[in-house]
């Protein structure tokens, strides 16, 4: 099965997962995602490692529209991860028991399966997982 990223140009899977943010050409302010305004914003690769800034667990299926996840719902953790020197990004969290989530824990970026699109492709979304090496 072929795969695709949930947001092309925002999240890339290969050769390794990365998030693409925007840096303001004048002020240096970094945001995610990059605003569609190349005159004022340049794309930059965001750091792939950071620390957990806050978190919660999405315990009910979000309303559709706009949610495009599978009908069969499994609760998932989400959080904000502080990427040093850049920004704090909102992301799904994976590979961690909900009870083990702690503000300040080291995290790293990965890609996880999200759903299957109309063309039968696996849609991958970005997620942060505990960074055991840190």
């Amino acid at each position: 099965m072929s795969s695709t990223a949930i947001a092309e140009g925002v999240f890339e899977i290969h050769p390794e997962p990365k998030l693409i943010g925007g840096r303001n050409r004048q002020s240096g302010w970094i945001v995610f995602p990059c605003p569609a305004d190349p005159e004022h914003w340049e794309e930059i690769d965001l750091p792939r490692q950071g620390t957990l800034w806050s978190w919660t667990v999405q315990r009910f299926r979000p309303k559709t529209p706009p949610y495009k996840g599978p009908e069969e719902f499994e609760p998932f953790a989400i959080g904000y991860v502080e990427l040093p020197g850049a920004t704090i990004v909102e992301s799904r969290l994976a590979d961690v028991a909900f009870d083990d989530l702690r503000i300040g824990m080291p995290m790293k970026l990965t890609a996880v399966p999200f759903t299957t699109d109309d063309e039968g492709r696996q849609v991958m979304t970005f997620a942060f997982i505990p960074d055991g090496k840190a």
């Binding site: 949930i6 947001a7 925002v10 995602p33 999405q58 979000p62 529209p65 706009p66 949610y67 495009k68 996840g69 998932f76 989400i78 909102e90 799904r92 999200f114 979304t125």
Partner: peptide
């Protein structure tokens, strides 16, 4: 906001 933000389940 971009559509993917809602697709992914963040519009809650």
């Amino acid at each position: 906001l971009p559509d993917w933000y809602g697709d992914a389940g963040f519009m809650v």
